[in-house]
């Protein structure tokens, strides 16, 4: 018994150790590779210099410090936060809805949040008191509203809320909101190119502002979800079972949906719609570590972040010096996986 317990803890510790290494390496890779290649050692030197005041190696030019600290690092951190948010939100949606095909993108939450973001960007709206946080807040609210619309609609169609119906409703609302965005773009005309890049998802040239803008929502959303990992496990056995073992179903459901929407909305606000991250990452982790949310949620967060850092790296190096939208990379990987999952699911049913 004790042995098994230790074994289990050790396994978890080993899993986390590997994960942390993967995260650090992907972050370093993200900073290192680019039009100007920067070796890992230099990056670490720069960090030590910046954060701990150790003297900088004399061969490192000061503009390199600038590049690392003001261009590469914020981009990598933002990519990490966005990826972590989307993957964690995806894992939560999947657990709560008992639906392996659910993620912020397939549920239409991303599109809904985009509408909010586009409205803010193009009408230059600024809400009182919240200042620069207007963008993520509006995005989050739009995302949350979309989610409830999708769920209410699904429920109205079919009380048992089957997986396919939820996804269909999500795609339907997503299409509608995409059309709304296109309409807005067509009407404004001017900054067409920029908004299209944004729509396809990008973490380029956002600087620290954007990173700081999403950070509070990321922290709150992540904590809300990680705090509800036991409840998510219970929901995996159905809402009735969750209630039987003592879960306050309505409240917890609301908390989880809010947490996931916070993450999705704030991610969309700063990076546009990046699809399928929330689908790919939790699925891979489930394959390796099982469905227990106590492990699944933190790992989704960490690997989601690392994945998007690497996806961003690919996006800007494949056809360098030009950049691909990051959403192209994630969709290229995610859409086929979605197809496989969907195929397997329908096969199992027949």
């Amino acid at each position: 018994m004790l042995k098994r317990f230790i074994q289990k803890s050790f396994n978890n510790a080993a899993i986390y150790a590997v994960t942390v290494v993967v995260v650090i390496v992907s972050l370093l890779l993200g900073i290192s590779i680019g039009s100007l290649s920067i070796p890992f050692s230099t990056i670490i030197d720069i960090f030590l210099y910046q954060w701990f005041g150790t003297p900088l190696n004399s061969d490192i030019p000061t503009n390199l410090v600038q590049i690392v600290m003001e261009i590469r690092l914020p981009r990598v951190v933002l990519a990490f936060l966005v990826g972590a948010s989307l993957a964690l939100a995806g894992a939560a949606f999947q657990g709560l809805l008992k639906n392996a095909l659910a993620d912020p993108y397939t549920l239409g939450v991303s599109s809904g949040a985009s509408v909010g973001a586009v409205i803010v960007l193009f009408f230059g709206i600024q809400l009182p008191f919240v200042g620069t946080f207007t963008l993520p807040i509006v995005s989050i609210l739009f995302g949350l509203c979309t989610l409830f619309l999708v769920l209410l609609f699904t429920r109205a169609v079919e009380r048992k809320m089957s997986v396919e119906t939820i996804i269909l409703a999500g795609i339907m609302f997503g299409a509608f909101f995409s059309a709304l965005i296109s309409l807005m773009i067509a009407l404004t005309g001017e900054e067409l190119r920029q908004i299209i890049t944004w729509l396809m998802g990008s973490v380029a040239m956002r600087g620290w502002n954007y990173t700081m803008m999403t950070l509070p929502f990321f922290l709150i959303g992540s904590l809300l979800l990680l705090w509800n990992s036991r409840e998510l496990n219970a929901f995996a056995f159905g809402e009735a079972t969750a209630a039987h073992i003592g879960v306050d179903v309505m409240r917890r459901k609301l908390v989880i949906l809010t947490g996931a929407s916070l993450l999705t909305g704030s991610a969309v606000a700063v990076s546009g719609t990046i699809g399928f991250v929330g689908l790919v990452i939790p699925h891979m982790i489930r394959l390796v570590c099982g469905p227990n949310h106590r492990l699944l949620l933190p790992l989704s967060l960490l690997y989601g972040g690392a994945f998007l850092v690497l996806a961003d790296l690919a996006a800007r190096t494949i056809i360098s010096p030009r950049e691909l939208p990051i959403g192209v990379i994630t969709s290229l990987i995610g859409a086929p996986l979605f197809a496989v999952l969907f195929f397997k699911r329908m096969k199992r049913k027949t």
Partner: peptide, 17 residues
């Protein structure tokens, strides 16, 4: 509802919620 991947022990642990 059948749930995939949870072990017997993990399932029973839910009872302690």
């Amino acid at each position: 509802d059948t749930t995939f991947g949870y072990t017997v022990k993990e399932t029973v642990e839910l009872g302690r919620y």
